[in-house]
Structure formats: structure tokens, C-alpha cells
Design a protein around this nucleic acid. Structure first.
Length: 257
DNA sequence: TCATCCCTGTGG
DNA sequence: CCACAGGGATGA
């Protein structure tokens, strides 16, 4: 569910609540996470809270707690543990509140490691000049290339579609077929979409979908994602949905070539 | 480079 | 009932 802007917002909101504080107790509600309280060990001071691609990393000094929300994960901040919402998988108690990892589909992950070592490409919010050369080396459809976190970290299904729409590029095009001008457009489009979404506090498509740790929904409104059959905001042509790599892919057949 | 799987829920 | 879901690992 969450992509870079949503994860970044979550981290920004949580940072003042947890950095410099101690995790006083950990409880796992999912058998998959049974060993986590043991490996985490309490009390554990949180030195830093950082986003790496779509991962959320709690720097505990000698070790890191690494969370990934995948499709349906949420992090909620709550003043008390008296009421545990349905689908809560993990709770981290602090002196003045608690953090709940809630994940209906249970696809999310939480693990304690010595060092964060996921193979991630450069962050999508950072310098994108590497795209010029990198894209030349792959014949994969550009949208799938953008979704591969080893290439570029942070984009997901919504913002990959949105960026390609803004750049006027057909998602099926081989990455290596993009001209220099198109790559320039794409770089700009990626940054624009992510900044817009960040400012809007992310995208909340359905009621049960993304929320900030304080329960707020995001205001970003996709231009093409989820708009099959609706008129393109630029030319009025109905937006088309196709499947690419098994994922729904939306684009304007007239604006994107 | 695919399909398949991991899971559960919702909406048509 | 079936289709679909904002992610990613895996094995053919």
C-alpha cells in the first residue's frame, strides 16, 4: 500500500515521538513474529528512525529493527495499549505511548538485523542522473524497470503510473528505447509526483487504505491510477488499464507514447 | 523474465 | 462468486 511518499510521511510523523526514546516492551500478536521480542530485547533506545526506499529502519545502535509495510501494513501511534485494533501484529511500548504495526494481509515484515542490507537502487527522491545510463542497459518495459527496487528505490504501482503519465511515456516501452529528452522528462516527472504526493500526505484510495500514524488520510489524487474508462485530464481520451508484470497499469493511450 | 505465491479483505 | 488490491521473494 504505501510507497515512498507515504512511508516518508510516516517516518516524519513518528520521528519526534520515538527518536531518543526507549522501547520499553515489545509484543508480537502474529506467530510469524514470535521470535522478534526476544531478538529485539528491551529496553532498547531508538537513536534514529530512517526510511530506506520503502523500508522503515529503527536504529537501535548495535542492531536495527527493519519494518516493511508491503500491501496492507500500517503504523499507528496510540496513547495507550488498552485497545488493540484488529489485525495488530506487533506493539512497541514507549513511556508516553505505543506504536502498533497493523497489517490485515500479513504480508508486511518486521525483523531485527545487525545491519540494513537490502539491495536497493538510488532513492527516487535523490539525484536521478544515473537514469541516463542505467535505462540504456535494460529492455524491460519502463514501468517494470521503475518498480524494481534494485534499480530505483521508492516508486510503487501508483507513482510509477503517475510519473509515466506526466512524462508522456507509454509504460510498455523498453527502458532502453527512451530518448535522452524522454529520460529528462521522466526524471522531472518522478520528482514532481513524489513531491506533490509528499505534500498531500500521500494517497488514500479506499477507506481502509493508507493512514498516517495519527489516522489521517492522504489527499493526493492520481491522474491516471485507478481511473480506467474515465477521461484523461489532459485530452479527454478514456484512460486504459492493462496488466504489466501482473500489476494493474493505467495510462492515456493518446498522451503516452 | 515470467508466473506463482504469500495473505486477507472489499467491491462489483 | 470472481476480480482485484499501493509489494516483493522465489523458482522455473
Amino acid at each position: 500500500m504505501p510507497e515512498l511518499p507515504e512511508v516518508e510521511n510516516i517516518v516524519r510523523i513518528l520521528r519526534p515521538k520515538v527518536v531518543g526514546k526507549e522501547i520499553l516492551a515489545v509484543k508480537a500478536f502474529d506467530p510469524k513474529l514470535q521470535s522478534l521480542p526476544q531478538s529485539l530485547g528491551v529496553p532498547a533506545k531508538v537513536f534514529e528512525l530512517v526510511r530506506k526506499g520503502k523500508y522503515i529502519v529503527f536504529d537501535l545502535g548495535e542492531r536495527k529493527l527493519v519494518l516493511h509495510l508491503r500491501m496492507s501494513g500500517h503504523l499507528f501511534w496510540t496513547p495507550s495499549l488498552l485497545e488493540i485494533p484488529k489485525h495488530t501484529r506487533l506493539s512497541l511500548r514507549f513511556s508516553d505511548g505505543a506504536l502498533l504495526f497493523v497489517d490485515p494481509r500479513r504480508l508486511g515484515t518486521a525483523e531485527v538485523v545487525e545491519e540494513f542490507a537490502e539491495p536497493l537502487g538510488p532513492d527516487a527522491l535523490g539525484d536521478l542522473s544515473f537514469l541516463n545510463k542505467a535505462l540504456q542497459q535494460s529492455r524491460a518495459p519502463i514501468k517494470l524497470w521503475l518498480l524494481d527496487q534494485r534499480n530505483i528505490a521508492g516508486l510503487g504501482n501508483i507513482y510509477a503510473c503517475e510519473a509515466l503519465f506526466l512524462a508522456g511515456i507509454d509504460p510498455r516501452r523498453p527502458a532502453s528505447s527512451l530518448t535522452k529528452g524522454e529520460v529528462a522528462q521522466l526524471k522531472e516527472a518522478i520528482h514532481r509526483v513524489l513531491r506533490e504526493a509528499l505534500e498531500a500526505m500521500g494517497t488514500t484510495l479506499r477507506d481502509e487504505a493508507y493512514r498516517t500514524p495519527e489516522g489521517e488520510s492522504g489527499d493526493y489524487e492520481p491522474r491516471v491510477y485507478g481511473r480506467e474508462g474515465l477521461p484523461c485530464l489532459r485530452c479527454g481520451t478514456p484512460i486504459v488499464r492493462i496488466e504489466l508484470g501482473g500489476r494493474g497499469t493505467y495510462f492515456c493511450p493518446r498522451c503516452q507514447h
